[in-house]
């Protein structure tokens, strides 16, 4: 299997040693070698790099989010512990890599939209709190049923204010 750097190395190996197996038709083998060297390594490198970035983001995101969640478990009273439910965990996991890969301007546009997402989160969490404290509804059902509040407010604010200067 050709993947990323491994693909590049295997291409060089084929070129220098004449192949992994003896081949009765050297010409066909050479064409195959050239194909591998010219196309597959670059393509697979791109795919591999994309997969690596997704994996790194997944691991960093999972670690940061679960760490903040555990930090929240340590504190009492409940209202103080709840602060950590709105810790900038996904943002911290994402923005560092975004700044490195896409630059400051791109990350600034993301942060500007994040402000709208945070306003939506505030309204969503306030509605959930009000329903749970006032009507003592089931917490999982309430949090999931009110999720459209976040989507509605976030996308609504985005639609209204999308023409903001960056």
């Amino acid at each position: 299997m050709l993947t990323g750097k491994k693909g590049q190395f295997s291409g060089i190996f084929l070129h220098e040693s004449g192949g992994w197996h003896s081949n009765p038709e050297p010409g066909r083998h050479l064409a195959g070698k050239l194909l591998i060297q010219m196309y597959l390594p670059a393509e697979s490198r791109r795919l591999n790099s994309a997969m690596e970035e997704l994996l790194i983001r997944f691991l960093i995101g999972g670690t940061v989010v679960s760490s903040f969640a555990l930090l929240g478990e340590v504190f009492r009273p409940k209202t103080f512990a709840g602060l950590f439910g709105a810790a900038p965990s996904i943002a911290l996991a994402s923005l560092g890599l975004t700044i490195v890969h896409h630059g400051h301007a791109y990350a600034a546009v993301e942060a500007r939209s994040m402000l709208l997402g945070a306003i939506a989160f505030f309204l969503y969490a306030s509605s959930v709190s009000w329903l749970l404290l006032r009507h003592k509804t089931h917490s999982l059902v309430t949090t999931l049923a009110l999720m459209p509040v976040w989507f509605g407010v976030a996308l609504g604010l985005y639609a209204l204010l999308v023409r903001w200067p960056a």
Binding site: G85, A111, A118, L132, L133, T143
Partner: peptide, 30 residues
Amino acid sequence: RVAAGLDAAGTAMGCIGLMGFALVVWRALA
């Protein structure tokens, strides 16, 4: 359910901090 409601109230307060986080990143990155 009351405990979950109190936690959610705290989360709403945390969201005010989250707005501040976003604002600082947005304005200071340049």
